[in-house]
Design a protein around this nucleic acid. Structure first.
Length: 595
RNA sequence: GAUUCCAUAGCUCAGCUGGAUAGAGCACAAGUUUUCUAAACUUGCGGUCAUUGGUUCGAAUCCAAUUGGGAUCACCA
């Protein structure tokens, strides 16, 4: 049985025996490193029951535990803190039971809950930027974590391929594109389309300025500028299925898709199911009609349709414009219903930035009011925005950190540093390139994922992402050291005639700490899954790697003369290597074998 | 204006389901390599946990107010 559970149970029994009071649960914490012990019970809350001083209470419980549990070899009391020491033999035994085996199991159990997770969901009018990178990494990592905790995960991407934004790019390309294509220019498709989106905005702003100078209000100018009117017209002709418009739309979207594909490949993310909003936005309209019939939705005099959420502390939300066209919410309603009909999910997770908190609150509430039972499984995985020192990134104004460029820079930096350190010596060119990618992208991914998703994060382009300290390369480096030990041991056949180590080994403090960290893996993983939070894994794996790095520095492993001890240390290192690799995999980060 | 999120070292972040002297990394200063890979290790410097009050044996953590910052409140997405 789990040692913590055992401690809790016996402590409950102790309190009952000593003070005659039943207690539902007690929680042990990991002992603070400054004190002697493995687990700590804080007894202050028990004083009402014991009616004794903290020290006295702690000593009584400590004695009871020592008498009733052979695993407890010692304890000490500091003020109200009861520190329990677990026998080295127990830890060693535990280690023997897990060493060399995988920690993560991706097999889907029978009756596994089905979890659909949507992430990425780009617009097709511009290339991906750093904000999308956070979204993609978060969505992918959470998928991995949920898979590793027994869920049947379906990764989806809802591509926002229609709407005014793509019409803007189309119009600008028609006007000023001179027939440019990715092939003719050598520009990646998504970047080419983005170029025209920026161009549209530039010209549109000029028109607004002119109209304002002619004495119009800004609001009027923004609505009446010829360019935006033309773009609206294009949107109408798209909705009317106009052949020429559709053709241009398909052509430009295809440029974008091939661009996205290469970005996704480089990022290492993928999807089980891809939806296109052009296929789902009409479905939303049917639901609106049903909602109207049910009386949940109402229509205004001008035929626009809305839902009144003021009783729930929200506002009135329009779901269909007066001209009958959809809004964003309409499409999201349609998509959600389509998915629920297609797949009976237990959970549907939307990975979307927290600027849309209100939107999802409204979306979930509407679906609930429409009577969809499955709506209780909806969850908005809301994450903080990536900000630059000067504030929010704005695509239209070009103040964005481009995903492709950033990845390329990271790989180049990794290459430069690796060469300086001689890490690529003896590698083939192909292997060297792979190493640079693994390190460069690893550094980027870890940088983004180590921050709590809920919090906004700052990215300063003038300060390059670190390769030292709390970073992926540091963790990868320690993995590589372990692999080097294993290779060396194997080549030299050091342990050919050595019997497996004995339980009577006494552990160094660092060794015990490392085993306790391994022991904590499952709790840590479950917490990361419960909170949809990869940063818990990132922090854990850094702690483990750092602890190992110090151990490696201080303690001989292969050089240890007592071979049984050396073998134990090697197996400890090997097992840590497994946990590093698997944890990094949960973050979507690869580890190299050499660096 | 309303709603909501945030504020921890010079910088970037942990810690927040209340517990021991608030931790890392970067930066800065000094040191460590004939010893398993130095992208490493060691030491030092650095804090009114925004402010004030409350709850509690105990508050960075919970509650309230204040200050400062972000986001949202569209027939945009």
């Amino acid at each position: 049985m789990d040692i913590e559970k055992k401690l809790s149970l016996i402590t409950i029994a102790a309190i009952k025996d000593l003070y005659g009071q039943p207690l539902e649960k007690v929680v042990f914490e990991k002992t603070n490193l400054d004190y002697v012990g493995d687990f700590t019970l804080v007894v202050f809350s028990l004083l009402k029951i014991s009616k004794k001083k903290p020290e006295e209470t702690a000593v009584e419980i400590g004695n009871y535990l020592k008498e009733h549990l052979i695993e407890v070899v010692d304890f000490n009391v500091v003020k109200g803190f009861l520190n329990i020491v677990i026998a080295d033999a127990w830890w060693l035994n535990y280690f023997i039971s897990i060493e060399g085996k995988p920690f993560v199991n991706y097999e889907i159990p029978r009756n596994a809950p089905t979890v659909m997770i949507e992430y990425s969901s780009p617009n097709t009018n511009k290339p991906l930027h750093l904000g999308h990178v956070r979204n993609n990494l978060l969505g992918y990592s959470v998928s991995q974590i949920l898979k590793a905790t027994g869920n049947n995960v379906i990764k989806t991407n809802l591509i926002n391929d229609r709407g005014i934004h793509i019409c803007k790019s189309m119009l600008a390309w028609q006007k000023w594109g001179n027939g440019e294509t990715p092939e003719s220019t050598g520009i990646k498709g998504d970047h080419l389309v983005g170029k025209y989106y920026v161009e549209f905005d530039k010209q549109y702003k000029k028109e607004i300025e002119n109209l304002v100078q002619q004495g119009n209000t800004k609001e009027y100018a923004e609505k009446q500028a010829p360019l935006i009117q033309e773009a609206q017209k294009l949107l109408f002709s798209w909705e009317a299925n106009d052949a020429a418009t559709m053709e241009l739309w398909r052509r430009m979207n295809n440029w974008v898709y091939s661009g996205f594909e290469s970005t996704y490949n480089m990022l290492g993310v993928n999807f089980d199911k891809v939806y296109y909003e052009s296929n789902t936005y009409l479905l939303g309209k049917n639901i609106i009609q049903e909602g109207l019939a049910k009386g949940v939705l109402k229509s205004r005099a001008d035929n626009s349709i809305f839902i009144d959420l003021t009783a729930d502390g929200l506002d009135e939300k329009t779901l269909l414009r007066a001209d009958g066209t959809s809004v964003y919410m309409t499409q999201d309603l349609g998509t959600a219903v389509q998915r629920a009909e297609e797949i009976s999910f237990n959970k549907l997770i939307y990975t979307v930035a927290n600027e849309q908190d209100y939107h999802f609150k409204v979306l979930f509430l509407i679906l609930k009011k429409l009577g969809f039972e499955w709506s209780k499984g909806l969850f908005h995985l809301s994450y903080g925005m990536v900000e630059l020192p000067e504030g929010k990134m704005k695509s239209r104004e070009g103040t964005v950190v481009d995903a492709d460029e950033l990845m390329q820079e990271m790989i180049e930096t990794a290459a430069k540093t690796s060469k300086e350190l001689g890490k690529a010596d003896g590698l083939s060119e192909q292997d060297a390139e792979k190493l640079y990618r693994t390190i460069g992208l690893g550094a980027l991914k870890y940088f983004m994922l180590k921050v709590d998703p809920k919090k906004k994060m700052l990215f300063n382009p003038s300060e390059s992402i670190d390769f030292n300290g709390n970073t992926a390369p540091f963790i990868q480096f320690n993995y590589v050291r372990i692999q080097a030990l294993l290779r060396k041991a194997n080549e030299a056949q050091i342990f050919n005639n050595i019997k497996p180590f004995e339980i009577s080994l006494s552990l160094l403090p660092k060794e015990k700490n490392l085993i306790i960290l391994l022991y904590a893996f499952n709790t840590m993983l479950n917490q990361a899954a419960a909170e949809y939070n990869p940063s818990i894994i990132a922090n854990y794996i850094y702690d483990l790697a750092k602890e190992f790095s110090q151990y490696y520095h201080d303690v001989p492993i292969l050089k240890e003369e007592q071979k049984e001890l050396a073998l134990f240390r090697l197996k400890l290192a090997k097992t840590i290597g497994i946990v590093i690799k698997e944890s990094m995999q949960l973050l979507g980060i690869e580890v190299p074998e050499r660096m």
